[in-house]
Nucleic acid binder design. Structure first.
Lengths: 340, 340
DNA sequence: TCTTAGCAGTCGAGGGTGGCGAGTGCTAAC
DNA sequence: GTTAGCACTCGCCACCCTCGACTGCTAAGA
């Protein structure tokens, strides 16, 4: 999107208006801007600026005799051009990093809580991108009755297992042979490779067709169950804002946070971007009156998922980005690797 | 609570009123009851019954010239005395039972979804009391490097695994020996027995001390990760009812489903009861305008957790209990093992 | 050409009023 | 014990009015 050219004063007016609206969610009048932000010019001047900004699509008026309210476009311009330094008082955020955790889940859960507490918005952490996980080892183990267990060890240290029914007339060494075949077929492959490939089996493997099918299905399940893990914290934050007084807003809000599939798409975004900010229903129809700040989430330098912060459109972007930066999620350089 | 003595006609009036209110959430007038439920008596008669029922605390009037609305007390009387047979058309509920699952989590998640879909209320499943889960099989498997995998199969069909570091100087048959020892020590024990016991190892087992410690720790982790897990399905169902138009109700609702600790107390109830129905803020202050039907949840005859169905106070108790019954969660005999 | 004071115009919010209708409670008669 | 009749209550809605917060426009001033 080519960014519109605004005069300095228009920028000031726009910034004042957005800052003010982020604060108290009230339409702002020309005289209010004059009093608090631009005492050097008269309200009339500001009015003419406002009407131009409105023409350009940055502002809307709830009704003709009310003040102005920023549009989604305005927020986008704001985060791209008007946001100053997002340093926040480095509170006790770092505590997360210093702790010791027993599982990715725990880190992620704690992070979500902290992010939500500090920003005062709802935070979501989703463990995604299971595509690149590779299978390091695969084993088949005889269990009991006619059941065997297939074990998969991945390169990020996760072991997953699945019970599988054996054919009734198995030979002595079935398990061993099958185990070898599985290893040959799957070790070193990524989950994506395993699940996408429609591999055709050699004739000699015909006996193991059912087994292979079961294993591939298992890998798919594994991929899905890993991808889908979602931690939401601070669900009730929405009620702290005037937006939470509107049932429709709450409904939208709940719909976003409780549909994993949709959320997945929203959080991951497209391409290889570090973070993105989605504002309003233009960016995603679910996000009416809301904004979602998304970023990749890394642990030990490995990308494990995505974090999202969900709030009203007039979210305090400065604070949110500040927190993400502090947590090392979003980097200093704002304008690289970024997409609206 | 000593249940009040009501005449047959009062019961009929009360039942008519509650049935009607469950249907459309509108205050009911004497003439409406007369028309649809009791055409043999005049509205005036019903009015006098109504005013007596109100005096007894079963009904309230939103305002003096409106119809009546059932009180929490009425719902309680209703579920205890007026609820007929809760058989519902046995839909495809049983499908859950026939499937094979690899973890309690999966079973529970699916059940929650199904319960919510069929009842059209929000369902919550909490896995509690992992204490009684017994270990059915334990195996140790050589993996790679210096790592082995310990597998635990429990009696409810769940397999859990953990990677364990081996001592550096293992003998040839270490795995086999260890596997046998583990089996001897743990198979048949409940998780509680394993984790509580401060077992002192025989001297001869000294070599395996570290292994045993790791395994016991693993069992503890397993127990903890299993306990307290909460699955909520159908969060958005509340919006399908007029109660979901009130922000305060939604707020309460969200507060109930997002605070695990509170929910824990609510779902578990006190003592050894099969199920309980909590209605309104008298039963639990969080439950204003809401009702929560709770029951123990068993898998293969073993209690693994509790299920809760959360909806408006004027919930369709018949349907809810019918579904629980169909799923084998609540038993035929309503009046045994029951509490408030 | 940009800025500003002045002024008319717009419209939402809030408050008061009055009629309608759905229900009730009471009473007296059956 | 039941019922018809009737007076009464009160929420709802539509209407109207005023107030005041802003605006856009215009014409004069820098």
């Amino acid at each position: 999107m080519s960014e519109p050219k605004l005069t300095d004063r228009k920028k000031k007016v726009l910034q004042a208006l957005i800052d003010s609206y982020i604060n108290d969610a009230q339409p702002i009048s020309s005289s209010a801007i004059q009093k608090e932000y631009l005492p050097d010019v008269s309200p009339a001047t500001i009015r003419s600026e406002l009407s131009m900004l409105e023409e350009m699509g940055f502002l809307t008026q709830p009704h003709i005799s009310s003040g102005r309210v920023p549009s989604s476009k305005a927020y986008k311009y704001y985060v791209e051009n008007l946001l100053g330094n997002q340093d926040i008082s480095s509170e006790n955020i770092k505590q997360v990093v210093s702790q010791k955790f027993d599982s990715v889940q725990e880190i992620v859960k704690d992070s979500a809580k902290i992010i939500s507490d500090i920003t005062n918005y709802t935070s979501m952490l989703m463990i995604t991108s299971a595509d690149n996980i590779t299978i390091k080892e695969i084993k088949m183990i005889d269990m009991y009755d006619n059941t065997a267990l297939v074990l998969i060890v991945t390169d990020n240290g996760v072991v997953k297992n699945k019970q599988i029914d054996l054919p009734i007339d198995t030979q002595e060494n079935y398990i061993e042979v099958a185990s070898g075949l599985l290893r040959k077929a799957f070790v070193g492959k990524t989950l994506a490779e395993v699940t996408n490939n429609d591999r055709c089996l050699d004739k000699e493997l015909e006996d193991f067709r059912s087994l292979f099918e079961q294993v591939i299905e298992f890998v798919m399940d594994f991929k899905h169950s890993t991808e889908d893990q979602l931690y939401v914290e601070g669900t009730e934050k929405i009620f702290e804002y005037p937006e939470g007084k509107e049932v429709d807003n709450i409904k939208n809000f709940m719909s976003v946070i409780s549909h994993k599939e949709k959320l997945h798409g929203l959080l991951e975004g497209e391409g290889d971007i570090e973070y993105s900010i989605k504002i309003g229903s233009d960016d995603a129809k679910e996000l009416e009156n809301m904004a979602l700040v998304c970023a990749k989430y890394n642990i030990n330098g490995k990308e494990v998922g995505h974090v999202g912060i969900l709030g009203p459109e007039r979210m305090d972007y400065k604070k949110v980005l500040g927190v993400l930066k502090e947590l090392g999620i979003v980097f200093q350089d704002n304008d690289k690797n970024k997409k609206d």
